[in-house]
Design a protein around this nucleic acid. Structure first.
Length: 832
RNA sequence: GCCCCCGUAUCCCAAUCGGCAGAGGAAGCGGUCUUAAAAACCGCGCAGUGUGGGUUCGAGCCCCACCGGGGGCACCA
């Protein structure tokens, strides 16, 4: 399109038919920078809104996905400003992370070279993209001024007992040579970042105690149900995995402490014919009979070798080993054998289960392999599991179950048994979660160092706060090569320090923090990004927060969004925040795909944002992305028409040259029909933006453009003040999506820049009232007549009018009228 | 296996409370302009809402079952 635009028109006006996309972009950027209309005033007396979109990782330049989320986000930020709010709308970079480190190794340089070069590239692209950010609040998580406070927060969490170290089997990515959090391992057992098959290693690592907040993180999802997109709430529910059940204690011969199992079916306790403990849990080694110790060790060795992929195959034959001890079923008093197997997970529940083979398929499969007894205690009317090898899990009549015999209600069975266990002191009802603690250490360089010093005398010693930040040592290139331990460990001068407590020789913790730690609190740092006295201001958080609308991608449905929620709750309990939740509303944007497939280098179907911008201009690309579909749907670029968007923008722009009435003209006497359309459009736009239906808002704006065109060419004519009113409304509505064209229109309409500072049109309710409306008359639900009636018509008048209509009488055709449903003023339905 | 979401015209998508299935766009077709084409402008709506039941005066919308697509969880006891 650019080759068709008029060259040599530096004012951006072009000829009479089209405006010059490129010239307009060059013309307005410096003006906007001078006016800087989007700076947020902390002292403003206005009501406030905090608009936030997920800050990017600086990998190369912006791509189509960024372009979409930024365009969507800009609509709401600009809208709130128009509606009189003081808007906080900051942007920054999530700039620690692996790609920079890998690039540094490749190019023998420091990760900051890649990182900060990309940040500048992206910042320049965002500038050109015309976004309503307050750039004075820009931050980068890799700046020492930022990660100083990330480290400070880590120390505070540790003081609360919410950051701790433990030895445990952890997820290990052999490609990235670092451990991963549970959330970073995909369902198929591969690394979320690089796709390599994740293995297990036994390591001592730092964790955040997210499980301490599992219940609250789960419960608060109810409050987010209506303002967060449903699938994300659902994903978090599934991830936290709340379940209700009971702890039941089994006495084990020769051991003082009973073994506690977790079960969701305590009502089947009478059918528990054996027990299984996780083979790799310490408990197994503890209770195993001496003569079975070797067998257990061999089994554990065997399962260690199996990959997660193998372990996840659910149709695999069960394996296990008899521990040679028995446990006492607390209700039957029976002695049942105790086995160890890898089908019981060490880190879920108590790492031990009671096996009820008749009513649990996994237990039944195990019982079959090892010839263990099956006892049915719920008769569901289905065939006996002992014969069919199909466990029955439904409701039924309890049998062989002592006090439960004859009961038919599962809930009652469960509560009866729990009451009995509690009375006996052998168990109690409990709630269990699937959520694990958050593994936060990483054996990589480009992250915030963990501010702990390990002293042979004093143990873990926190770095004194006045010594923060613990800055990264200057390593580059080959020094950073992953070797399974942190590259920081090899920086001798950096690692070897004296203990802050005793002064003796000690070593710094050489791991860095997961970059999700950095992004778990950045929305708080935006409140005062240059404050060097505190991480964030509680007063400003109170004034601005929580975030009114957060927009981002589904890939963070359980990662970042869950971690940020956890941080918020911890900070609240520390008295630093009053927020219950960080994000009052959350909207996820779909992906931009191409020709039905995800864009990727290997498919060669990538769409380059820069090329699209060059060809169609910023406005047309933004318009295309916002107009394409509801925000959360995927956009297939192959189905889109940026050329069509540009065509529309030219049409809209042309209107601004046709207006002949002067700026500030009294519009009250203008053409009523057009004025009604304008005011109706503005009112609809308000509702549509507030409900995030931006695509429909644009459709309405297109309608207004069409109506205005018609009014100029074959209606009231260009001089009518209603035309000016309509075109000004178009400019203001469009400025939320296509700021360059809107600014150009605003100037041509005789106004000083910027349109962003224009006053939102005040809707005249009187113009929304229509003189007459069309009422439809249905016979048996089929439309038979249309009547022009007053909007205020009464039900009786409308019914009388309808029944007197000739077409209606003909349609009734003499049949008996049994009922007339009237919904004035729009509808009458006659039942015959 | 369990839990969510979505199926409307050739395509992308609209349709506040259950009330005329079509707002907007793309593509297509016809026309004006043009030597011609493109652009621009004007005009044209073709499906009865995935399928089958049900509720209702009336269902795209509510209920049930199924089919198709997408997502989350999953040896989680």
């Amino acid at each position: 399109m650019s080759e068709q635009s008029t060259q040599g028109a530096p004012d951006g006006a072009g000829d009479a038919a089209t405006f010059d996309v490129k010239a307009v972009e060059h013309k307005w950027l410096p003006v906007w920078e001078r006016l800087d209309p989007f700076r947020a005033d902390d002292a403003s007396p206005k009501e406030r809104k905090y608009a936030l979109t997920m800050f990017p990782y600086p990998s190369g330049d912006l791509h189509m996905g960024h372009a979409e989320v930024l365009a969507l986000h800009d609509v709401i930020a600009r809208y709130w400003r128009f509606r009189g709010f003081e808007v906080l709308n900051p942007m920054g970079w999530d700039s620690f992370g692996l790609p920079a480190e890998n690039a540094a190794i490749r190019n023998d340089e420091h990760p900051s070279t890649y990182t900060y070069a990309n940040i500048e590239t992206q910042a320049a692209s965002m500038r050109k993209y015309g976004l309503a950010f307050d750039w004075s609040r820009r931050l980068h998580t890799s700046d020492p001024e930022y990660y100083r406070w990330t480290q400070w927060l880590f120390l505070k969490f540790r003081e609360q007992g919410l950051a701790y170290r433990k030895n445990s089997p952890v997820n290990w990515c052999p490609q990235d040579q670092t451990v991963l959090a549970n959330e970073q391992v995909l369902a198929d057992g591969t690394c979320e970042r690089c796709g390599a098959e994740v293995t297990k290693r036994e390591l001592t690592q730092w964790y955040f105690r997210t499980t301490a907040y599992a219940q609250e993180l789960y419960d608060c999802l109810d409050e987010l149900q209506d303002t967060w997109i449903g699938k994300v709430v659902n994903a978090q529910r599934n991830w936290i995995g709340r379940s209700e059940g009971a702890h039941v204690r089994f006495r084990v011969a020769g051991r003082d402490e009973p073994v506690t199992v977790y079960t969701t079916r305590p009502d089947t306790l009478y059918g528990a014919t054996f027990m299984v403990v996780a083979a790799d849990a310490p408990l197994a080694a503890e209770i195993v009979a001496p003569e079975r110790r070797e067998a257990l060790a061999a089994y554990v060795e065997e399962i260690r070798k199996a990959s997660d992929i193998d372990r996840l195959a659910t149709d695999r034959t069960k394996t296990g080993v008899d521990l040679g001890v028995t446990a006492t079923n607390p209700v039957t008093g029976e002695q049942v054998p105790v086995w160890a197997s890898d089908y019981v997970l060490a880190d879920y529940g108590t790492g031990a289960i009671m096996a009820v083979p008749a009513h649990d398929q996994r237990d039944l499969d195990f019982a079959r392999v090892f010839g263990l007894p099956v006892r049915r205690v719920v008769d569901t009317g289905e065939a006996n599991p002992e014969e069919t090898y199909e466990a029955t899990t439904g409701n039924g009549t309890y049998v062989n179950s002592g006090p439960l015999d004859g009961l038919t209600d599962k809930a009652q069975g469960i509560s009866t048994i729990i009451a009995r266990l509690e009375a006996d002191g052998t168990g109690e009802g409990t709630v269990n979660f699937r959520l694990r603690d958050w593994l936060l250490s990483r054996q990589r360089y480009w992250g915030a160092p963990i501010p702990i010093i390990h002293c042979p005398v004093d143990g873990e010693v926190p770095v004194p706060e006045d010594q923060l930040p613990v800055e990264l040592p200057a390593l580059r290139g080959a020094d950073l090569k992953p070797k399974g331990t942190s590259p920081l460990g090899a920086a001798t001068d950096w690692v070897e320090v004296s203990c802050p407590t005793c002064g003796g020789p000690a070593r710094r913790d050489s791991d860095t923090m997961d970059t999700f730690v950095d992004s778990s609190w950045y929305f708080l740092r935006f409140l005062s990004p240059h404050d060097d006295t505190q991480a964030f201001s509680s007063e400003l958080a109170e004034a601005w927060g929580p975030i009114d609308l957060y927009i981002g991608g589904d890939e963070h449905a359980v990662l970042h969004l869950l971690y940020a929620r956890f941080f918020t709750k911890v900070l609240r309990d520390m008295g630093l925040l009053t927020w219950q939740e960080p994000f009052s509303a959350y909207l996820s944007q779909g992906k931009v795909i191409n020709a039905g497939r995800k864009m990727s280098k290997s498919l060669g179907n990538g769409v380059d944002l820069g090329k699209q911008l060059d060809e169609f201009g910023v406005d047309a690309v933004r318009l295309t992305l916002v107009f394409a579909s509801p925000p959360e749907d995927n956009i297939d670029w192959a189905d889109m028409s940026p050329a069509g968007s540009l065509k529309f923008l030219q049409r809209a722009w042309r209107l601004s040259g046709d207006v002949t009435s002067p700026a500030g003209v009294d519009v009250s006497g203008g053409d009523r029909v057009l004025r009604s359309v304008t005011h109706r459009t503005v009112r609809d736009a308000e509702e549509l933006v507030e409900s995030h239906r931006f695509n429909v808002m644009i459709a309405r704006t297109m309608e207004l453009v069409n109506a205005t065109r018609k009014a100029i060419d074959s209606g009231c004519g260009p001089a009518d003040p209603a035309v000016r009113e309509a075109v000004e409304a178009v400019a203001i509505l469009l400025s939320m999506v296509t700021p360059y064209v809107a600014e150009e229109m605003w100037e041509r309409l005789g106004h000083a820049p910027s349109v962003a500072q224009a006053t939102w049109p005040v809707v005249d309710e009187a113009l929304l009232v229509q003189d007459s409306v069309v009422a439809v008359v249905q016979i048996q639900g089929k439309v038979r007549a249309r009547l022009d009636v007053s909007p205020g018509i009464s039900a009786t008048d409308l019914e009388a009018l309808a029944l007197a209509d000739a077409a209606v009488i003909a349609a009734i055709d003499g049949r008996e009228v049994r009922k007339v449903v009237v919904r004035e003023p729009k509808l009458v339905n006659v039942v015959v």
